[in-house]
Write a protein that binds this DNA or RNA. Structure first.
Lengths: 222, 222
DNA sequence: ACTCTAAACGGAGAAGCATCCGCTTCGACT
DNA sequence: AGTCGAAGCGGATGCTTCTCCGTTTAGAGT
């Protein structure tokens, strides 16, 4: 029933409307403490070692508190990813090209995919952890929605003839943590090889542009 | 450490080499009984209601037995998917075209994707269950390896200029149970719409064939 | 029929997730 | 400073997964 829209949100874009009643100071303190401890655990022993009970114990709070703050295991994971996600969003929404505005659509998409791969390179386990413990949540999360909207917008510009939303979902599927880890651990691909693979597909998209479709809205053909 | 290679295997293709020492009769009996009970539970109450303890209780065996037979939750799920997977493999390996041999590569790929979507339509929850409880296992499973090899072979014929293995993984990523359920539940797509989406992408692949690359190995250009 | 051993069985127990609910505390408003 | 209600706290509790290990049994060889 509940979603993780608050975590990892597209809040960056939202006006300060009905801020859902700011956290009480003790609550905020606990959240920070818990996040700090959680990060330490993950850094030192890996995500597998991160348990709700253990976290509560190490942070010196009751388990109830952990659940109140983070809802569940997946919520905790999303909270841990949130900082990086915010920065990422700022970069592709407001940063400098080619990731940020200013570059042609295909270039921005490419930059987005590359940047995403780089994030996975350091955080794939955490992403996987989050995805697995709330399987449908990835798609409902604010982060996913934002990424999807971003890609869909760019794709509409690059390929007005293809369903942009579908394509956006497709591209994001290629960035799933499970696939990434498989490619890294089993196939021993480097991030550069993955990027190259994605580039190939993008080239495909670019090359296959229908002759009568406008490739970019305002660029002349030559 | 362990994998699920035995479940959902490409055994279809394997000669009768070192059959891993046939099951003892009591073991086989228990496996059948457990699978039957598990299927009943899933059919009547959904995958969420399928617990190892409950299964053991309902089947009248100890939990240890369940774990010995199926290794873990994910293993049980894979075992439940196994029957259908065998039939699916037979169809795309030996069945009639366009799914089976005889049709041109792109047509076979399309047929494969469509058939996969149809399977997901009835079994997505079980697939998701399996994927989530052994996140990396999907990629290591015999089923995945077989699907991947199949697609890679066809892709090599259709697009010798693109890394077939990478593309195969990409296509299979689009068939993840998580994405499927998201598209069905959240976006209210029909299976036909999903198939259409996949077709669009395939058309892209087809259309973007490099002019100097041979589209099919022995077809003349005109 | 008897023996013997690898395989299978069963269930107690450890550990984790999540909930519930009575108690405590913050902080807004007098 | 004092009141008061919403929000937060915590840990007992229940349920589940999975492991471990002592006991039992199938079935091959004699």
């Amino acid at each position: 029933m509940e979603t993780y829209n608050d975590q990892l949100s597209g809040r960056v874009m939202l006006p300060v409307l009905g801020q859902p009643a700011a956290e009480r100071s003790d609550a905020a303190r606990n959240r920070q403490a818990l996040l700090a401890v959680a990060q330490t655990i993950v850094a030192s022993s890996g995500v597998a070692a991160l348990s709700m009970d253990g976290l509560a114990a190490q942070a010196g709070v009751g388990v109830g508190t952990v659940y109140r703050r983070f809802k569940d295991r997946a919520g905790l994971a999303y909270a841990l990813l949130d900082h990086g996600e915010r920065r990422f969003q700022e970069e592709f929404l407001f940063g400098s090209p080619p990731l940020g505005p200013g570059a042609p659509p295909i270039a921005r998409i490419r930059a987005f995919l590359h940047a995403y791969i780089d994030r996975l390179d350091t955080q794939a386990e955490l992403h996987l952890f989050a995805e697995c413990h709330a399987p449908t949540a990835r798609f409902r999360s604010g982060a996913y929605q934002t990424h999807r909207a971003h890609l869909a917008l760019l794709l509409t510009q690059a390929r007005p003839d293809i369903s942009a939303n579908y394509l956006a979902d497709a591209l994001l599927a290629l960035l799933g943590a499970g696939l990434f880890l498989h490619q890294r651990r089993e196939l021993h691909l480097t991030t550069n090889q993955m990027k190259a693979g994605l580039d190939q597909l993008l080239n495909c998209l670019d090359a296959a542009t229908e002759p009568n479709a406008t490739r970019t809205l305002d660029a002349e053909r030559h």
